[in-house]
Design a protein around this nucleic acid. Sequence first.
DNA 1: TATGAATGAGCTTTCATTCAT
DNA 2: CATGAATGAAAGCTCATTCAT
Lengths: 201, 201, 201, 201
Amino acid sequence: MTAQDRALRRRSEILGAAATVIAEKGYQETAIADIAVKLGIGHGTVYRYFDSKRHIAENVIEYVIDKIALLVADVDPDSAETLEDYAAQIGTLGNRLFDFFLTHRDLAAVFFFESYGVDKTLTGRMQEAVELFGSFVERYLDNGCRKGFLRSDLDVEITARAINGMILAGALRAFQAADPDAQRDRWIDAIRTLMLSGMAA
Amino acid sequence: MTAQDRALRRRSEILGAAATVIAEKGYQETAIADIAVKLGIGHGTVYRYFDSKRHIAENVIEYVIDKIALLVADVDPDSAETLEDYAAQIGTLGNRLFDFFLTHRDLAAVFFFESYGVDKTLTGRMQEAVELFGSFVERYLDNGCRKGFLRSDLDVEITARAINGMILAGALRAFQAADPDAQRDRWIDAIRTLMLSGMAA
Amino acid sequence: MTAQDRALRRRSEILGAAATVIAEKGYQETAIADIAVKLGIGHGTVYRYFDSKRHIAENVIEYVIDKIALLVADVDPDSAETLEDYAAQIGTLGNRLFDFFLTHRDLAAVFFFESYGVDKTLTGRMQEAVELFGSFVERYLDNGCRKGFLRSDLDVEITARAINGMILAGALRAFQAADPDAQRDRWIDAIRTLMLSGMAA
Amino acid sequence: MTAQDRALRRRSEILGAAATVIAEKGYQETAIADIAVKLGIGHGTVYRYFDSKRHIAENVIEYVIDKIALLVADVDPDSAETLEDYAAQIGTLGNRLFDFFLTHRDLAAVFFFESYGVDKTLTGRMQEAVELFGSFVERYLDNGCRKGFLRSDLDVEITARAINGMILAGALRAFQAADPDAQRDRWIDAIRTLMLSGMAA
DNA sequence: TATGAATGAGCTTTCATTCAT
DNA sequence: CATGAATGAAAGCTCATTCAT
């Protein structure tokens, strides 16, 4: 392993430990020393890899956002041709997203809560990420309208963000539930139903 | 005005100033002195009305939650008899909620962002509030199912929280938009459409 | 004593203690806590009166410079009419300056040594002060040339700074001597002799 | 070049770089890493040649002092036989000293300023060096008195240190002047005049 | 009741120094 | 010999909280 590799690994370890500690104690309550202790390294070492405490938080948050963006970007919004395709896509995406949060609980905690406790700039960064996911959803809806399997009179822009809101609410709720997997399945069903047919009898 | 009254008024003033400053600078960046300066009182005085900085935040947040709970509690979930009644109720509630956040921007900022930057307990308190609103929505859905104008196979519990997620996402987005009123109307329409008929063509 | 007075007194106390500690340990080795301990106050209190450690040093140095400037400014450079007057003036000024340093040993130590250990800006400030004293000396020489009791071909500007250099060297040496008073008298004599008649046999 | 030679050369390089950086940034602001970067070597390497940061400063300062001592020691204080010889000697010495500071600006900056910002011991060492130069001047005066071309009633000890003060003040001032050479000539003239004949008309 | 001076816990950050490679 | 990753002492500074007035 080269020195370069070791440095990158150390950087990753610090980010990982930071995510864990921040998820546990909250950003403000987290001291640099806590992160160092968790890794069994001197706290000065942390400053060899990051400029400041805030810089660490920034990197953790960017990391989460990147990971989620990858999940979402991986599915082609234009590929669905029928309502059935579309329903399947919703299921796939939902499962991925929910699974990510359920698997990476530290990152989920940072994503849902701690990214608002650092400062206005990072809060804004999170908002941008949410908006990015919203704009992905919008592309799915656009495709559906174009292909004709979604209503042509849809307010695509807003509806996309509304769906995004449901998804995030669901992911958060499943993340916090005692039985995450059951919750996940029910949420995906409920969202899909609402999207496709609404609630009217 | 009795001494009692004066004390209550002063307490309110402090909460109001706190909400404004916290909304502006964020909880962590807010110093007790900032709040006192805003009111032109000594910062020691604040401690005659609140035990601690956290205590103030707690009260501000409880205040927001109470206000919103009042808005919601004011509409009888059982009163809708038809899908039309129901659609009207959705519009009424949505308008109230959106209007509240648009009118009380300080409180909205605290509600949406700052309540996550204090500590785990208050974050949990916020989650309870969100859950409370979700359970209200659930009662509306229950009523609809019982009365037969909503599908009987609805996963009422989850669907209610999904709708709640949409509403909050919309309120936040309208709150941050350049043209809040236009956004509000589009969101209410989009959510109502989704709820009643879904998106399928 | 008003609150204002008490604050001013406290400020003075801090400056005094700072001068003492800085004179003793040097600026860099002086911790804010040392100053606070010397006064039996909390170290946070120091920050109620000064913005930073550097701010304290700056004030101490300005204080010394002001005090010395006062000593010098008090004698009218134009009042000497004859060489005898002039010789007497030199004696008066020398005595004052030497006495000041001998009486205020803390301030002398700061003036001579510590004002160079803070940063470039303060070092520059000290240089300005030295130059100010030099320009005072220049006015004395100017007067002497105008009145005709000093040589008309004198390089007044440079000679004044040379004399200033002697005076400061003498003050420093007396300050550090075991027998300051004897040194002071010898220095004043030696400088006066050199100024008036030089060393040639 | 032997290993020994290479080590000595490296040691010199470090001292030179240190002088430059210290002159630029000040001793306290200088990090070992700055010196290493300047030489393109690892900062751990510096510790193979010097025990500590202070040790480097000590060596830089000793180096300056040695250089200056050499300049001065090179002229025999007993060689002047007449006032004219003496006047010439003053000119020679002054020119050498001024030239040294003007040529080695880094060393001058360290000598004049930074040697006071390390610690008491080094400040004392500088004082000793100044005193050494003073004692040299004293030997010149002694010679003049013995030979009869200087006044027999001179306070040789003090007058020597006074002249030393002038010389250092002049060197400093020339070092900082925009037109160092012109300043040097005027200072040497002014000091010589003062020494030989004083200022009286 | 109101005040604001005083306090000190507790943090972030720097960097001289060490030492395994 | 050279390196630079790792270390942790050490200090400046902030500000919530207390309490005498």
